[in-house]
Design a binder for these strands. Structure first.
Lengths: 206, 206
DNA sequence: GCATGATACTCAAGAAAGTGAGTAGTCAGA
DNA sequence: TCTGACTACTCACTTTCTTGAGTATCATGC
């Protein structure tokens, strides 16, 4: 039941439409939760029914009309109650880690490709988060902003996201290097064993 | 559908019972996926029905009998196919981050308590992962183990888990410090504004 | 000698999350 | 003028995850 609280937390920063919310929760920027548009529209409907958010119709001429939502007093109270609950530990759940766990039994090339792709993805998010942080703190330096800035919540979660993606990138890079080195070794070994100084086709499966 | 592949990956390290698997996937050690016992038993049943794992009954006298599972050739092929698919990016999903996102609107004390608790949790996992890594590499040093060790998959995922928990701990510590400093400031400001050199009760909500 | 906790599982129900498809207008570029 | 991308949403369905309860035996400690 944390999606609803994530929505409430996101709406604290100002009125948003379901569509804007969806963009924030979907690719990239979701540095504290992730959800798809359909989930968000559904959750907004529920939240409005329960009076935790309120929406107002905004008529637009060049585009479809939209509804902007904001958090009500009840909504804020619900968030407050949520914050007081014990946070359940957040567990890792990552396809790529599952693959690496099985590394010793799988095709190394495929894994290295996966690691490289994830590294690029992480790099892109690092850029994105860096830009977001700069934007949030404006012309102030970080220490100053953290001391006196008005809204540091999003800044802190963004810092977490940045650190996460940096670790991700570094780990991907290092793991790929290790796998490459081992692949190279096993090729060498195979060549030495069968016919020294021959050019046997390079196999990636050790 | 990654749970099934996580189970397969876990079983590569040797035969395990559902119960042993459950312990590995539950608290702590699950450094590449997390799941509850019920899910695992259900998944094992499905996997066995599809021939991706095979179980054998082990009769015990001092304890209930158990079934040990291992991955079949079909299971390994399924893992191989899974590895070749594009890994979907793993998104953050963390109660605590949701709370911090809303930090500027919530009770600071409650948040700091949450951060402290998570920090302790992270510290415990760091210890745990450190021990696991030592155990896996035995008497070799890390570089040597990563070059020539026989099974590095679990080692690499454990390294990822360790890095994650370190970042977690550091971020919790730093965020809590920042919030404490701001709380202190706002108290000061409040005291200065109402009655300088009076002992007004300290409020934590800025 | 009785509670507690570990081993070893199973069943049922419900909440949450993910997937796929569809509507409908606007705008920019080929 | 047609294609594709963007804004702005909705409906229906399936899979996955979580919660709670229950069974049975054995070992350990108070």
């Amino acid at each position: 039941m944390a999606l609803r609280h994530a929505v409430l937390a996101a709406l604290l920063d100002g009125e948003l439409s379901g569509y804007q919310l969806a963009k924030a929760f979907d690719l990239g920027v979701a540095n504290f939760w992730h959800a798809l548009p359909q989930q968000l529209y559904a959750e907004l409907t529920r939240l409005e029914k329960e009076g935790l958010v309120a929406g107002r119709e905004v008529v637009q001429d060049a585009r479809p009309n939209k509804r902007l939502f904001h958090v009500t007093a009840d909504g804020l109270a619900a968030l407050e109650r949520f914050a007081a609950e014990a946070a359940k530990p957040s567990f890792v759940r990552d396809d790529l880690l599952v693959k690496v766990q099985a590394a010793d039994h799988l095709d190394t090339d495929v894994l290295i490709a996966g690691l490289a792709e994830r590294e690029r993805f992480a790099e892109a998010k690092i850029e994105l988060f860096g830009g977001l942080l700069r934007q949030m703190r404006g012309d102030r330096d970080e220490a100053e902003f953290l001391r006196h800035g008005e809204r540091i919540g999003p800044y802190l979660t963004c810092l977490r996201g940045l650190a996460f993606e940096r670790e991700n990138r570094d780990w991907c890079r290092r793991s790929a290097e290790i796998l490459r080195a081992r692949r190279h070794q096993s090729r060498q070994a195979a060549e030495d064993a069968t016919s020294p100084s021959s050019s046997s086709p390079a196999r990636s499966r050790p």
